[in-house]
């Protein structure tokens, strides 16, 4: 843990100094919202459509962040420096997925209000609490798989291509649960003329998708933990 913290601190210092990853991710996400607006020609989105646009934009931003994750380690000898130290290899996995998780979270602090502004889903404010829980869980899946895929891709010649094409199919289960779950959150049913309410209830329909997403997080974390060490050896 001490070592993972050291790596994470190093990564955050570099990110704060260069501002290479997070701003790019944020700009990309907001631009994607705008692109979707023109593609769909809708002034406001709701339900499954809103959830889908949001989920896909986040996934693409995650891909962007994933590509950069290990580049400094590869190009500036970070892997060798780390491997020379008498420490547990898993620390690298912990630190990198924590970094990606943080990047995604910071990005969403910008993306969530931006989505409210541009897509204006009805009942957005009421659904925000549930949305945040979903976001935390989907960030975990994106971060874990992103770290794994990035560690694979960084040693290939065409890493900017290999990373996304491996990563996207692996992320589909997380995307499915996130999109359907938040789709339920953002669904509206008309109570009176012009009056809308988000869906609420004791048996929240989004609940089971939260569970699916959480299970996917746990599963991928165990899988990545089991195989990650092999990616650091030569």
């Amino acid at each position: 843990m001490r070592v993972a913290w050291a790596i994470l601190r190093k990564d955050l210092t570099v990110e704060l100094r260069t501002l290479e990853t997070v701003p790019a991710m944020a700009i990309f996400t907001v631009a994607t919202f705008v692109i979707f607006h023109f593609g769909l020609q809708r002034d406001s989105l709701s339900g499954q459509l809103a959830a889908g646009v949001f989920a896909v934009s986040l996934l693409f931003a995650a891909v962007l962040g994933t590509n950069r994750l290990f580049v400094a380690e590869r190009e500036q000898g970070g892997f060798d420096g780390f491997l020379l130290a008498p420490v547990d290899r898993t620390a690298m996995f912990l630190a990198k997925s924590a970094a990606l998780f943080l990047y995604l979270t910071v990005l969403e602090i910008i993306a969530v209000p931006a989505f409210g502004l541009f897509a204006a889903p009805p009942g957005y404010g009421g659904a925000l609490g549930g949305l945040i829980v979903f976001l935390l869980l989907v960030n975990l899946a994106f971060a874990i798989l992103g770290t794994l895929v990035s560690a694979i891709a960084v040693h290939t010649r065409a890493r900017d291509l290999i990373g996304p094409i491996i990563g996207l199919p692996l992320q589909i289960p997380a995307l499915i649960s996130f999109a359907i779950g938040t789709g339920k959150l953002l669904a509206v049913h008309t109570v009176g003329p012009g009056e809308v309410l988000p869906v609420h209830g004791a048996h929240h329909p989004a609940g089971e998708w939260l569970l699916v997403l959480a299970l996917y997080d746990v599963f991928t974390a165990l899988l990545a933990y089991a195989v990650f060490d092999f990616l650091l050896e030569e």
């Binding site: 001490r2 070592v3 050291a6 190093k10 500036q76 970070g78 420096g81 008498p86």
Partner: peptide
Amino acid sequence: LLSHEPLLYRELSGRENLTYHARLH
């Protein structure tokens, strides 16, 4: 190991690099 590559991060200062390696070790 002192290899061909310095194994230092370009964006960090010498002191920060050494502090990082000190933490690893």
